[in-house]
């Protein structure tokens, strides 16, 4: 039903897709161009290397030759993968709890609202207390401080998105499993969890992305060793202005790990599709 289309429709669809592709990819292409242009050419509308300007790899060479670049990439990867995983594990459990159980003292609604409210306060308001907290825990300039923080502040995403998805699962499947002797935990792990796999993957990607991009806490809690990519990118702004060619290189580098991850993850989104189709 959904794949039977007339040629006119297909032309329209592909036209739309093409526009979206240009829209999504052009900024990356522009970042790439910035990274291979000489500083003096930054503000020129030249688009085609070799034809319009002579590209240079000097910025890539100088960025890749130093330790800081690799450190920042590594820190960012550690921070976002760990934080997203912690948030997903804790958040999925809580999401399931909110979808399947009714709590007495505090209503499910209040609990959900409370989780959500963690994302509302502007981070700058709590930067100083977190600085003090991390100093107390001896975690200043440590990636683990940022893992903790990002896990905490991305936790609402799995809680809210996944509890919606759990709720839309027919509860009978789990009940049937429990009648067959499975425990709550088993029915959660074996029945409910696989059915929300696309949601799990999507949520994990979202937690990753937010941890990957988080800037303000990273800025105030790191100074050297634990510096992640966003702060490193901001470091391209010098006393004399923004060094756009380094921004270009750094943005491109920043995109590498998530691109690989997104490519890997989308297989699971597909797999989730087939599973989801079975369930109904």
């Amino acid at each position: 039903m959904r794949n039977r289309s007339r040629p006119v429709v297909m032309v329209f669809v592909w036209g739309l897709i093409l526009i979206m592709l240009i829209w999504v990819l052009f900024p990356f292409y522009w970042a790439f161009l910035n990274s291979i242009k000489k500083p003096a050419e930054t503000f020129q509308a030249t688009w085609v290397p070799w034809l319009q300007f002579q590209p240079t790899l000097e910025h890539w060479a100088s960025e890749l030759s130093i330790r800081e670049t690799r450190n920042a990439l590594r820190n960012s990867t550690i921070i976002s993968v760990s934080a997203a995983t912690v948030a997903l594990v804790l958040g999925t459990l809580a999401a399931y709890a909110l979808a399947r159980f009714r709590f007495q003292r505090i209503s499910n609604g209040s609990l959900t609202t409370w989780f959500l409210s963690q994302r509302v306060l502007p981070p700058v308001v709590v930067v100083i207390p977190f600085f003090l907290l991390m100093r107390q825990l001896k975690l200043l300039d440590s990636v683990w401080a940022l893992v903790l923080l990002n896990a905490t502040f991305t936790l609402p995403f799995p809680v809210i998105i996944l509890s919606q998805m759990f709720r839309e699962l027919p509860v009978e499947l789990e009940e049937a499993a429990m009648v067959d002797g499975a425990s709550r935990l088993q029915s959660f792990l074996r029945v409910a969890l696989p059915l929300v796999l696309p949601g799990l993957v999507a949520t994990w990607i979202i937690c990753m992305a937010f941890s990957w991009n988080e800037f303000l806490f990273a800025l105030s809690l790191t100074s050297n060793r634990a510096l992640p990519m966003p702060v490193y990118i901001a470091g391209a702004e010098h006393t004399r202005g923004v060094q756009f060619w380094f921004v270009g290189v750094r943005v491109m580098l920043t995109m590498l790990p998530p691109t690989i991850l997104a490519l890997l993850a989308q297989r699971y989104i597909i797999r989730g599709l087939t599973l989801g189709a079975v369930k109904g």
Binding site: V24, P27, M208, F215, M229, P230, V251, P258, L263, Q266
Partner: peptide, 20 residues
């Protein structure tokens, strides 16, 4: 996969690129 990529383009970097 391509459509998801902008999520990871650090906003700070995009802000700078926006200037150009």
């Amino acid at each position: 996969a391509i459509m998801v990529l902008p999520l990871f383009a650090t906003p700070v970097g995009m802000g700078f690129l926006g200037i150009t």
